[in-house]
Simulated scan of single mutants.
Amino acid sequence: MKGIFPIDKFKQLQTPFYYYNTELLRETLALVRQEADKYNYHIHYAVKANANHKILTIIRENGLGADCVSGGEIKACLEAGFPAGKIVYAGVGKADWEINLGLDNNIFCFNVESAAELEVINELAGIKGKIAPIALRINPEVDAHTHAYITTGLKENKFGINLSQMNGIIDRFDTLKNVKLIGLHFHIGSQITDLTSFQALCSRVNEIQESMYRRQIIIPNLNFGGGLGIDYHHPNRQPIPDFKEYFAIFHKHVKLRPIQQVHFEPGRSIVGQCGSLITKVLYVKEGSYKKFAILDAGFTELIRPAFYQAYHKIENITSDGEIEKYDVVGPICESSDCFGKEIDLNKVHRGDLIALRSAGAYGEIMASRYNCRELPKAYYSDTL
């Protein structure tokens, strides 16, 4: 495990920092393209997972589009060279300036999440004399069996349009002259490892399509979002998710009409495993019944364990000592600043380097300056 990191170079750098294995990222992207191209699927990288400029540039160079959820993400993608015609824009709270940004740059599609939003986009597009391309984000009522905070496809979630409202909203397009319905969008959640959830999504979409076909409506684009999970427990064993099986499920189970195109929005599954948070041990604190490894990184650098109670594999990459158990914690003045309890690590000493794996997604992008901390730097395997 330690062999995957240039430890001698790490020792010369100020911790904490993010380290990206760009070779693994490119290998992942090559596989995504290989498997998606079998079926002529369109891939839009979900920028919210990681908007690091170099990471975005590598993804763009590999031909992917972008899935954005804010005006800032649209700007970041345009700056990284993404064609506006490959950008889709989702989000329940699009501000007017963000909608106008998308309209001004002629992005591919707005993934609309409410009737109220549809009216606003129609109004703003009308002011500019434009026709806004729209996909309706539909809640398919499919349980992704994932963490409650990252489940998105149920009627009680804030995202999307409930199935019971769909036909009524589609009928509005007859009176809204500055929007055009070009797609249906679905996203049932994140970090999904039970692929049968995607089969259930396919079945529900087939039902929706049949209902619309009876109304003589065929919508040209179907967007199935993202959600494919990664192996946080064994990042070395499976550094690239099973995109072959993932895309094959949709090819096998979705009933397409001849004119229809299929889109996906993977994020975590592309960048999650290529990134690690590298941090240094400040102190080893021995209490009456446990040991603490106190790091110079905290939830300001990787919030997922505190926010989602999420697991990240933790490794001592500079020690070959006997395995001991530690509570691995950060320096933030909050009790929730804990990366893991009773973690097996090679014997920890002050100054050891610790790697928190699978931090390429929702690590750097969610970093904060709480406690007036500086944001960490990022380094890359092809330039270090």
Rank of each mutant, 00 (worst) to 15 (best):
L163S: 07
V205R: 01
R304M: 12
F299R: 15
P258M: 11
E141C: 05
F250L: 08
A367Y: 03
K291M: 09
V69T: 14
N316W: 09
F108D: 04
H53N: 13
E79S: 14
T175G: 04
L302F: 06
G63F: 13
A148C: 05
S319P: 05
A144D: 00
G360Y: 02
E210F: 04
H233L: 10
A359G: 07
V32E: 06
F186M: 07
D171N: 13
Y308P: 00
L64A: 11
A361P: 00
F17Q: 03
V329D: 03
R172P: 00
P83S: 14
N223F: 02
N62K: 14
D382A: 09
I192H: 02
A378Y: 02
C372N: 13
L13T: 02
H147W: 04
I134S: 02
H234L: 09
N122P: 04
A135K: 01
Q34T: 13
C372R: 11
S211Y: 04
R172H: 12
N122C: 09
D96I: 11
D344P: 05
E79L: 13
S197K: 12
I240E: 00
E123L: 10
L24T: 02
N236S: 12
S335M: 07
I58W: 06
I58Y: 12
H53S: 14
G126F: 06
Y246G: 03
F339D: 01
E334W: 05
K86Y: 08
I55M: 13
S335D: 08
Y283W: 09
K75W: 00
A135S: 15
C274Q: 01
S203G: 03
S190N: 08
A84V: 01
L181A: 05
C372D: 14
V142N: 05
I365M: 10
N178H: 15
Q199N: 09
L24W: 03
L56Y: 01
G360M: 01
H234Q: 12
P140L: 05
F243A: 03
R350S: 11
D296N: 15
I217T: 14
Q238S: 09
Q309F: 08
K180G: 03
R214N: 10
I249D: 04
I134A: 06
G65Y: 11
I87G: 00
I182C: 09
E324S: 09
K177N: 12
E334C: 05
N52V: 03
E315K: 08
A200R: 10
Y39G: 09
H185D: 14
